[in-house]
Design a protein around this nucleic acid. Sequence first.
DNA 1: CTGAAAGCGCTAACAG
DNA 2: CTGTTAGCGCTTTCAG
Lengths: 340, 340
Amino acid sequence: MVTIAEVARHAGVAASTVSYVLSGKRSISSDTRARVQRSVQALGYRPNASARALASQRANVLALVVPLRTGMHVPVMMQFATSVVTTARRFDHDVLLLTADEGPEGLERVAQSSLVDALVVMDVELHDERVPVLRELPMPSVLIGYPADADGLTCIDLDFVAAGAQCVDHLADLGHHSIALLGTPSAVYERQTGFAQRTLTGFVDAAGRRGVLGVETPCEHTFDAVLHTVEQLLRDHPGITGLVVQNEPIIGPLLDVLRRLGRRVPEDMSLVAICADDVAESQVPRLSSVTIPAEQIGLQAVESLITKLEGGSVPALTLLPPGLTARASSSQPTGHIGSP
Amino acid sequence: MVTIAEVARHAGVAASTVSYVLSGKRSISSDTRARVQRSVQALGYRPNASARALASQRANVLALVVPLRTGMHVPVMMQFATSVVTTARRFDHDVLLLTADEGPEGLERVAQSSLVDALVVMDVELHDERVPVLRELPMPSVLIGYPADADGLTCIDLDFVAAGAQCVDHLADLGHHSIALLGTPSAVYERQTGFAQRTLTGFVDAAGRRGVLGVETPCEHTFDAVLHTVEQLLRDHPGITGLVVQNEPIIGPLLDVLRRLGRRVPEDMSLVAICADDVAESQVPRLSSVTIPAEQIGLQAVESLITKLEGGSVPALTLLPPGLTARASSSQPTGHIGSP
DNA sequence: CTGAAAGCGCTAACAG
DNA sequence: CTGTTAGCGCTTTCAG
């Protein structure tokens, strides 16, 4: 590998001059700059990352901690990771991939060894044991999610409360009076991954505000669970005409179950999903949905980190507003058209 | 951050002794070893990654290049990535995440700057422009997939030819005489991502060998495409009683389409899918399937890289044998029971 | 505007 | 078995 010294010799300048040409941290006569750049090209010089990191105290690497088992939809996670990598590259950083199973110790490891100079942690739970660790780490971090005690930390997330409310409002606006939230598996609520609970809060509050009946039930990922849950729901609340679904894997089975039960969508049952756009669009009928803006969250997360690394300050909490796209799966409830 | 010099002073030894205690690269009296270890603990010492990399010429980081847009099922990809990270950690390495859109230049960048000391490249196409680059790189790499010219490279993949054949054999063993392969979208074949073509090869060869009719058709990911494709297939070949599916996203729609067309599974139509186990098991009925051993491929990839890094040699091509699990979606063709 | 020189924190000969 | 020393390749004062 060619070193900075070789480039310097080739260009007839000092190594520091080469460094400064590359970093632009002091002004260089256009003459020597050109000469150095030609030498860099000619020799195919690439600065050694470790040497640079050691001397500058900056690895130019961000850690990305992804969940392993989670209620989170995998493609959304991947979209998110992709967005983090892409954005990091725009700021000349690379991304080190960590899995959540390394736990708090893993964060300490990469941070304290200066392998990375900032961290993005996904799928943060309400009482996440990594939160206190992050607070003590000698470098900035951004959490995707929203722990109970977020003091001194930077969090970014979709505004799930607003998302839940938006679904209710959409259905209420259409004239529905009885609706249900088909939620994530109960394990997700128990783990207190904030997002499921916050959606529920938004759903319940909005239902109250709009004066509609809003019932709620968790749902596991198997076909049988969906069938059983929906049957039970319709037995207990026969008047339900609208469903909000926050559980991507059951969307297919749910449509199937409704078909089996003889409920047409949207004539007999309106549906609004909280899911990725491509999932909503690939169903029959295409689903009205609130998108999880994975790409935007990733972008925001990295931009916040870079700002912090440069000494800037960022808001402690960024809640991205949800956007509801009405598609074919929601309409006025049949037989109630025109009712108040 | 505490340095090796501080640990050395605290323990009353030389810095090199601390280094040797940590690396175990030479024998240390149990007395000083204990003393050093106590100091390491007491001070909470973590070796600086850049300094270590610079001095030892080893970053202890592997690059993982993941595809962005691909015919590959995302959860499988994620499984794979997870396996790579987990295995890398077992060998005391970390993983740098790169996306395919950085192209060959991205590989050169991380390799020539010594950011990583080996690479895993996923979703390698038949005529992948990264292949010649990898060949020239001054460090080992492993490809997941199987390019046309794999000379001098190490490749690992599922044996898709065998997978295609195994599906045919399974159905032929059950007594089916006319079967079809529902493949990936035609774009995937055109991109010549080897796996789709190799499955097709195995399917066609085995059908010939077993003397059964084997027809083949690509299929896009939309519901309408599935409906259209299956209708066309059954119109052209009404005798078909068995389907091999290599296209994870259409599995749900396909089951739905068959139901609509009044074909029961497996009574009227047997199904074998090439997909992840959890997908096969979450369908109704549970699908007979050939698994993509993502976890094992990831493990194998990292182990090969580590072996190469240590100067060992590994086979140029490792094709992991497919494993078929018979579940509820395949049976003898009704009305043909007992026929030869 | 440029060069010389002092580290960054660690590893690995080399010497004893 | 342990210590001394010379780098690894770069950045960044300090001097001019």
